[in-house]
Simulated assay, not measured.
Amino acid sequence: MSYSNFSLEEVKQKFNLKTIENSGIFADIEPIESSDLLQTILQDNLPVAIASNSEKARSEMIIAPILVELKRHFKDEINLFSGVNFTVDETQDLNGICDFLITHSTEKLIISAPIIILVEAKKEDLNAGLGQCIAEMVAAQIFNQKENNNISIVLGVVTSGTNWRFLKLEGDTVYIDLTEYYLSDLNKILGIFCSSVDQLKKM
C-alpha cells in the first residue's frame, strides 16, 4: 500500500484524525498579484493542457508554473520538489511518490525539514485525492518531528490545475476547505500559498 491507496475514511481511521470541513477557511487571505511571466505561461499552456486532459499535462503545464512562481516569490527561502519518492514509514504505508513537495529549507538536492506544503495533482475528482494528500501531510508531520522540527502545521492542496482545494493539518486535526478556487482566482490561490508560507516561517 502507498499514499495513493488511502481514501479519506481510511486515513482518518488509521491515524486517528479529526476533520473539520467548512467553506471559506482561507477566505480572509489577501490575494497576491501574479507576475506577467506567469500569466503569459498559463495563457500559452492552458489550451494545450486542457486539450490533452491528462494528469501529467495539467501537472507540468498549469500546476508547476504556479508553484515555480511561489518559489520565485520567496527566492531561496523555500525549495520545490516534483515527482519525488517520499518514503517515511513503510510499516504505516507512508510511502510513495509525491507530485509536489515544498520545504522551508536552503537544501536543493535533498528533502530537508521542515516540509511545509504537499500538492497532489488529480485530473478530475478532487475529493478522490483527499485521502492521498492527507496521508502525505501526516508523513510530512512525522518527517519533521523525526528531524526535531516540531512545526505544527502542514498545508495540503489537491488540484486539477483548473480547480484547487486547500487543506491544513494541525496536530491530529485536518481542516478541509470546501471552497474550490479556480484558475480565474489565480491571485487568491497565490495569496493562500504565500500567506501559509509566511505563517509557517514564523514557527
Rank of each mutant, 00 (worst) to 15 (best):
D125Y: 10
N187Y: 14
K146P: 13
D89R: 06
V68H: 11
E107Y: 07
I151W: 05
I176P: 00
Y182I: 08
I142C: 05
I116A: 02
K108N: 08
T173Y: 01
G161C: 10
H73Y: 15
L109Y: 08
D177S: 02
R165Q: 12
A57F: 11
S54T: 15
N148F: 14
E180P: 00
V68L: 12
G83W: 04
Q141E: 11
I115L: 06
M61S: 11
C98W: 02
Q145D: 13
S82F: 03
S54Q: 15
E60W: 02
E60G: 06
H104N: 10
I63Y: 10
L167V: 09
D177L: 02
L67Y: 13
N149L: 09
L183V: 14
F74Y: 06
I151V: 14
F143W: 13
D89N: 11
I116K: 04
R165K: 05
K146H: 14
T179N: 07
C133L: 10
A113L: 06
D125R: 08
M61I: 09
I66A: 05
D89Y: 06
L101Q: 04
K71Y: 03
S112C: 07
E90Q: 13
F86V: 03
V119T: 01
G83D: 05
S54I: 04
R72G: 03
T173R: 12
V154R: 03
V84F: 03
I62L: 13
E107K: 01
K168M: 04
L94Y: 03
L118W: 05
R165E: 15
A139P: 07
F166A: 04
V68A: 10
V157E: 10
E180C: 08
K71S: 05
K71R: 12
H104G: 06
E136K: 01
I115D: 02
N144M: 08
C98K: 03
Y182E: 07
E77I: 08
I115P: 00
Y181I: 04
A64Y: 11
R58S: 09
T173Q: 05
I97K: 12
